[in-house]
């Protein structure tokens, strides 16, 4: 089926159903914040987030808004604005299931999925309490070693949807991500991908060798919506993080009531 062309954000977001396993990128790689607010506005429920490999405001807002049942992540933090307050509160209250991970384990799980393999092997982890809280991770003796060489196995992570923001897409559904290759891994690993973009590219991204090297082909992309400044208030490219907004979020979201005031205001925009 040919790519139907860019759609309205709300219609594209139908790809994400209640209970979906959704892969989201770190703050430096293009966080689809406008889409996140739209999802919350729609009232999505029971999401299972996979942070690749960590998240900040996006996961914190989704959790605070009650849309998340489970989160797999190496960390959730507001960075220089402090701990993620709604994440922290939800974990302490036990209202969200946490699957604590470490960055390369999430990359490894996605890489297994993009190869169609059942698992990846990785170094590290032996003796970490992460293995105690992740019974789905296994330790085997390296079958190619001389014996007594424990190695951790990470099962493939196959998200239902990868959701991120990128600089541009063309009319064929190809998306240019540049060197943000974790977005490519996410899209390869996921069953489907929803991308918001700054703008449309006039031409075929795959026709130019230089652009093609940084392009995610339409094969992997289910829906594209054009949303200029779609990562706000999180940085993107040369655009910096809205520091005033982030400081205000950290302050308001420190309490449940403050977060609800923040959310009501932001969703009304």
């Amino acid at each position: 089926m040919a790519f139907p062309g860019p759609t309205e954000l709300d219609s594209a977001l139908r790809l994400i159903e209640d209970g979906a396993l959704v892969a989201i990128p770190p703050d430096y790689a293009g966080v689809a914040m406008a889409a996140t607010r739209a999802l919350i506005r729609r009232g999505v429920r029971g999401l299972r987030l996979v942070c690749v490999p960590q998240s900040g405001l996006q996961a914190d807002m989704l959790i605070g808004a009650g849309t998340v049942a489970e989160i797999e992540t190496a960390a959730v933090t507001l960075g220089e604005y402090g701990l993620a307050p709604r994440f922290t509160a939800a974990i302490r209250a036990g209202t969200v299931r946490i699957r604590d991970a470490t960055c390369p384990a999430i990359h490894a799980g996605l890489q297994a999925s993009e190869k169609g393999a059942p698992f990846s092997a990785m170094r590290g982890l032996i003796g970490s309490d992460l293995l105690k809280v992740r019974p789905d991770w296994r330790v085997i003796d390296n079958p190619f070693g001389p014996g007594d060489d424990p190695v951790a196995l990470i099962p493939a992570i196959r998200p239902d949807v990868a959701l991120f923001h990128a600089p541009m897409a063309d009319a064929h559904g190809n998306v240019w991500v540049g060197k943000r290759r974790e977005l490519v891994t996410m899209a390869h690993a996921a069953a489907d991908t929803l991308v918001t973009v700054e703008r449309l590219y006039d031409g075929d991204l795959l026709a130019d060798e230089t652009l093609a090297a940084g392009t995610l082909p339409a094969l992997y992309v289910g829906h594209i919506a054009v949303v200029p400044e779609g990562t706000w208030p999180i940085r993107f490219g040369t655009r910096t993080t809205d520091a005033t907004h982030m400081a205000e979020y950290a302050e308001m979201a420190a309490t449940e009531a403050g977060f609800q005031r923040y959310l009501a205001r932001e969703l009304a925009r």
Binding site: P53, Q54, T73, A74, A75, V76, T77, L83, A84, F87, T88, I91, R92, G94, D100, A101, T102, C103, P104, A105, M122, R123, G124, L125, I126, S128, D129, L130, V133
Partner: peptide, 27 residues
């Protein structure tokens, strides 16, 4: 420890998470 203080399932304090420590510390 980059995860939690107290009981893991009902922590007294929760930190952001382990980041890449469970790998980089080894290699």
């Amino acid at each position: 420890n980059l995860v939690a203080i107290g009981d893991y399932d009902r922590p007294k304090a929760r930190f952001s998470g382990s980041f890449g420590s469970a790998y980089l510390y080894y290699v």
